[in-house]
Design a protein around this nucleic acid. Structure first.
Lengths: 197, 197
DNA sequence: GAAGGATATGAGATGGTTCTCACAATTGCA
DNA sequence: TGCAATTGTGAGAACCATCTCATATCCTTC
């Protein structure tokens, strides 16, 4: 985490550093992000950087934490957590909220995705385990007779997660409609299957 | 592509360079692979490398091409292309053959995967469009009444592809059984859906 | 306004990368 | 064998990365 010196900085300077880091981490995965560019963009001297942070990892962790805070705040405000509906409805609503979020701050969303795609050991450590909540929802849906008892929740989440990862990543900001259409088709397939009965 | 000088090399030396490159590209994505390590492992002087190849990209393209040749040869020998069955059966058989291949040469398979995960512009250009064949199979299955007409083949392939990518990637060599179990569960979900009818 | 701790600063240390080039060695052929 | 063409060689150029450190400057408090 940042050193006290960083927190003592004037807001304007803190913001400049934060913005520069976000910009860099949004356009390069962690391993390829350059402190050189960050300090240049933020217009702070090299030495200063090490007054504020221990190293690149330190900065990255800080940025990730801040963006995560921002994301959960926004999702909470959108009231996404108390939707009644099955697994698919909830995930769909959440994605709509995330798309909205991305519209306001494309860089923020992009960092989260790069983080997922980057498979370095360090990044793996950072990646949280967010599947637990989804598993609970699926089990609940099984109990209420919406989802077949014999379905493996882990596989189901895995399918959805990998699908979202690649699609959200590939789809630019521009093509929200196409993303939603693809998503709905995928939900249909997972709900009903592809086989003719 | 390699310079003529490379092809004129003695087999032993060619093999040494090829092996060193495979080893490096199997353990690092393209952008992080180091020529330094490659020439060291291959035990060739720095200058020699540039007698054989234009640069790192040139070497990488060559390796990819060779491995692709190897892969298709092996799949053909396994007689994977003339299986009668639906989309899922064919893809399942092909994966079994690929797992076999990976057993013999883990590095080769790993390179193919790193290639898929690496999203640099250069790598994107290299990535072939292998979805066309799968689309044909799905359309055939629609005609023969196995798959619902209204299913979007692109989305179906996308779901499967992204699922495989992440799972094949995550699953080590050790856990073939678990991978197959997960795969079969995913096929079941895509075939029949998760909803209770 | 002087003292002293906190902060700012950027040159350069250090180590990594790709790639070049002048020359040495080897090979193939007349 | 002798000459020309091909190939081998490794030191180092050029660049870029992270990180340190001695010194300058600012800022607070008495």
């Amino acid at each position: 985490m940042p050193k006290p010196t960083f927190y003592n900085l004037k807001e304007e300077k803190k913001r400049r550093i934060f913005q520069a880091a976000v910009q860099e981490f949004a356009s390069h995965k962690f391993s390829e992000a350059s402190l050189n560019r960050i300090v240049k963009t933020a217009k702070i001297p090299w030495g200063s950087f090490y007054q504020y942070f221990d190293n690149k990892e330190d900065l990255y962790l800080y940025i990730i934490k801040e963006l995560s805070k921002y994301k959960w705040d926004a999702l909470e405000q959108a009231g996404v957590d108390n939707i009644d509906g099955d697994f698919f409805n909830i995930i769909r609503e959440k994605l709509i909220a995330l798309i909205e979020l991305r519209k306001q701050n494309p860089d923020y969303a992009h960092i989260a995705l790069l983080q997922e795609m980057d498979d370095s050991d360090f990044i793996r450590k950072v990646r949280g385990d967010s599947t637990k909540r989804w598993k609970e929802i699926i089990e609940r849906d099984k109990k209420s007779g919406l989802i077949k008892e014999e379905i493996d929740a882990d596989v189901m989440i895995d399918m959805f997660y990998s699908f979202l990862l690649l699609n959200f990543y590939r789809t630019g900001l521009d093509d929200e409609e196409k993303f939603m259409a693809t998503l709905d088709e995928a939900i249909k397939i997972m709900r009903e299957g592809v086989s003719v009965r």
